[in-house]
Design a protein around this nucleic acid. Sequence first.
DNA 1: GTGAAAGCGCTAACAT
DNA 2: ATGTTAGCGCTTTCAC
Lengths: 347, 347
Amino acid sequence: MNRKSNRSGDAASPAPGRARMSDVAATAGVSLVTVSRAINEPDKVSPDTLAAVRAAIEQLGYVPNLTAGSLASSRSRIVAAIVPTISNLVFSETIEALAQTLADGGYQLLLGQSGYRAGDEMALVDTFLGRRVDGLVLTGNAQTPALRAKLKRAGVPVVQTWDLPTPPNQPIDMLVGFSNLDAGRAAAEHLLDRGHRALAFIGAEEDRSRLRLEGFRAAAAARGIDDVQAELIRPPALIDDAGPRLAQILARRPEVTAVFCNNDLLAAGVLFECTQRGWPVPGRIAVMGFGDLAVARAASPRLSTVQIRRAEMGERAGQMLLARLSGETDGPTLIDIGFEVVARAST
Amino acid sequence: MNRKSNRSGDAASPAPGRARMSDVAATAGVSLVTVSRAINEPDKVSPDTLAAVRAAIEQLGYVPNLTAGSLASSRSRIVAAIVPTISNLVFSETIEALAQTLADGGYQLLLGQSGYRAGDEMALVDTFLGRRVDGLVLTGNAQTPALRAKLKRAGVPVVQTWDLPTPPNQPIDMLVGFSNLDAGRAAAEHLLDRGHRALAFIGAEEDRSRLRLEGFRAAAAARGIDDVQAELIRPPALIDDAGPRLAQILARRPEVTAVFCNNDLLAAGVLFECTQRGWPVPGRIAVMGFGDLAVARAASPRLSTVQIRRAEMGERAGQMLLARLSGETDGPTLIDIGFEVVARAST
DNA sequence: GTGAAAGCGCTAACAT
DNA sequence: ATGTTAGCGCTTTCAC
């Protein structure tokens, strides 16, 4: 009952509803295939016909139906990406670079949020596969066995990001990331090198954050320090969680002199809390962040942090996908982009 | 040459490539239509057949081809949204709430970034219309006449967000927003009421920010203050732009005692700059933000700001769209959700 | 409650 | 350089 019913205002608009490719063909006085070619492979059409077709398209306000095209060609020109949340700034640069790289290659990005829930991730993958996306970019490598199986069966190119394969997990297909374990370790070593012995950790209760905590603890233990206070925040971890969590840590262990926060915004929250208490940083307590977001360079004092090249990660993910989609079969399928400890004033 | 070629590892996987609905039908011993019904309208199928169909789906690992479904039904169950950038936290809560509301209604969100460029917005709309999205959510109401015309011709439900219609612009279809002009005005009045006379503004060089500046200036002028220093940052405006811009303002006009920042993160950047200079806030300078993000409640001092109910905006946008898509013809099509000045410690 | 036939709007061979 | 013939995998009448 809706296919023919026009919505409300039905003024004398230039175009009569929605034109199809055959309408364009008729108007231009050519066949339907020629129109298809004029749109998709303009070189294979004579200049005159091309002009005629373009005029007809313009005149009719024709918008190609990409759904029909996808069905016929079994290529959607869509790549889907799943991130835990778009409200976390660490992901947005990766996504922006990915979207840009894909766009330059003629693909569009479909974005889904898992909310850190495995069930949601599975549901998203289902609809993405249902839409026959040409590729998939996932965050982390903690996907459930069921999900892995489904992806392999579907045969879609997949890129995992933001982590390296942590045994026993194998890469599903391609991967670009870094070792979160080593990053946590490096953060601890940085603080230990500066003489801190009473360490604390604030992060989200989530896979990659847990890995960094594990590395952080391992490095501390290697130097004989076993008591690392940790506060894990149920995601999303927001900046206004930082102050109260720091308070919790200090209530349990007042002598803490250094805290590693699992993203720079959380670290900025800790800085604000210190300002509130009138505590000098790093005099009373050293603060280290993660990510090297813009806030790390803007904070006072400037934040020491672990830099992740987030944009590069998105770009590489996009390139790997484009290479695979264009039929290239060689090229890397596992990239460790590493990380770098950046020492600034807060430690 | 690729339709039949299988990628690399071709182990004895349970499923032979990709099952179609007819395969499910054959396996379940029913007709294809029945499978379609079992998936889309389970009530209209007997419990036994339903069970049989579900078993077959499970066994074959069948994933419905939504592209084919969309083509046949001319409904995509996709709503697209365009935001300037996902790297700006003010948009993410709106988008998250929108995505959630739509998901509850059985629709998926396709996200596009315009990068604040009108040309990109047009290109995005083109591909979205090409994919026959069922609805569209746009940011702001400064769309070009060409874009407006295209949207009206296509007849898709459209919701504009984050602003009210500013003459001569009419709403394209539906709208949920607030007056950026009035919000800027209210911010100025708040600062004026606290006795400030030398005012400054830091914001992005972008439509809504400009409107807020206009309102800010108008309210100041109404009280006899004509010299409002403004710094407009070419988007994206990041937190580390704040300090340098404040410095610029002070270099031109050292007696400035209050600055209105066009988002809370920028305001946090100004707070950090003040900490750096050893300036008391609001003693030496008052700082006001916009949005009421989490950072406003976490900063030191707590930020006075203009609160926008961003999640509600996304939810309302989703509801309007769902109502329209389900055939409801009444209901509101223009909602002013307002704003609220929140006075905290920074002013 | 279930099925048979027709077609959504395009692209992919294969001609010419 | 252009056209013809077949589908892509579903949903929709309409019939039983």
